[in-house]
Design a protein around this nucleic acid. Sequence first.
DNA 1: CCCTGTCATACCCGGTAGGTATCACTGAGG
DNA 2: CCTCAGTGATACCTACCGGGTATGACAGGG
Lengths: 287, 287
Amino acid sequence: MDTLETRELRYFMAVAEELHFGRAAERLGMAQPPLSRAIQQLERRLGVSLLKRNRRSVSLTGAGEVLLHEGRAALDATTAAARRTRRAGGADSPGGPRNRLVLAVKAAASHELLQKLLDAYAAEPDAAEIEVLPSGTCEQEEMLRDGRADVALMHAPFNSLAGFDSEELMTEGQIAILPAGHPLAAHKTLSLADVSDIPDLPLARWARHGTYPPGPGPEIHDQTQLAQLIALGRTVAVFPDSARAWLWAEHTAVPLTDAPPVVTHIAWPAHSRSLALAGLIRTATRL
Amino acid sequence: MDTLETRELRYFMAVAEELHFGRAAERLGMAQPPLSRAIQQLERRLGVSLLKRNRRSVSLTGAGEVLLHEGRAALDATTAAARRTRRAGGADSPGGPRNRLVLAVKAAASHELLQKLLDAYAAEPDAAEIEVLPSGTCEQEEMLRDGRADVALMHAPFNSLAGFDSEELMTEGQIAILPAGHPLAAHKTLSLADVSDIPDLPLARWARHGTYPPGPGPEIHDQTQLAQLIALGRTVAVFPDSARAWLWAEHTAVPLTDAPPVVTHIAWPAHSRSLALAGLIRTATRL
DNA sequence: CCCTGTCATACCCGGTAGGTATCACTGAGG
DNA sequence: CCTCAGTGATACCTACCGGGTATGACAGGG
């Protein structure tokens, strides 16, 4: 009736993303004709046209766009259910489910805070085991949504907290990281405008989901790469204060006066009901 | 592999809620044996035991509890995707998708605010059509989650805003609604303690999802019933200020000094990307 | 000790998901 | 203008599996 099987959703997502039945079928590991048929059935069942086929190109209708977004959320929720259930498996000794929590953190994030949090929590009675899962740039949200992680350290305004519950842990300013020898490195403070268009030092561009924002700067996907490029005098970067921890001798940090403060949150799926998670959050807010 | 079909989720939810294969099968409109088999397959696929069968009774394992919660969220997301897609159907004329928004409101909620909101929004250029969906006590959250509604007026602290984005619209105090002739009705103000244990006037109990909280007061599921019982001198109720709008001559409203303020929010699913919704929210915050 | 309730097993059938072959149509290029 | 490459739809077949019925196995209560 109005069921929407997971398989159908998967199929539609593939087609909607590829906008090409052949490639979508290949990605799904199946032949093209059954895929075409499945999508037709889906459209008939929903009573809605999802794709515009022009015999030569495929595009989304309005309803298709809606299903692309809502379906992504639904699929994520489903795989999250599977993952979390599987993870909870075996943990069934009465009196104390040996819960394990997966904590997603951006690799470059404040190491000090994380260390304090883990230490404090480990000291708690009946603390669950914490698995620290390093995540790429802005990937924590996705990880929480699809169940790879149970809880995450996020950094507003870079991460969006939409759809999660969260508690504020720490606020810090931002600094510009410059090559030590650069003229600007002599300043006591700088503004964003000062560092955003230095002719010889374009701002580095970070990979987000495999693609890079446009711009003149070098393409980066690794903090060490960035550190090296700065040391070589090829680029400049803007980071939260806590990045001072990993600066090299060839780097100079200069506070930025007008950069928005970075707020570190601990965030988790709003519907979570795990005792272990509650304990970790309590510990975190007490730091 | 780790797919978790919607059908399997539906089946498991039924069994997990009934804790009885026979009744669950009946509720699903199928025979018991295929249901047993489906659950076994599910457990085998997940590699996790979900139910403890004692040949005489069924209970959830830890993993089963997890799947019960996570699965509910996943199923809601899936049916939401179906509903919203279907609702977006046909709306495909280029240049302006004739979006229609479904707004869930608690029936007893501030009528004045709702009226102002609807009027203001209707005056906007290219306003979408708003369908007002009355919802039972604390049902708005569920409606947002499963796609029956796109946006809702919620009242903290009664509704939980967890998992939604929201904007604050209005804050009001609370009042006790008493029979006009009652001695307490002569007071200028009251405290919660004053009204919570009046021997002859027990607090009314509202239905939530068909069940009533325990207590001595009468069982209510309708504001008119409540008004009548108060008028008859049988009960007393606590409401936000805006309830004054529907008071009878036989009622007296007395402000409560220590009741938590009621904050009306406009709330919507965090991942929403609808233009029409954005417009409505903009209008609401400008009121 | 039997009887009832309850979940699991055995077996069968029909629908349907998926594969292969092919058609229908479109747009580019010579 | 015709041809050919590319792409989605159609036709048809098969095998799997979801669902049904009948029955077994076992626990508890009278």
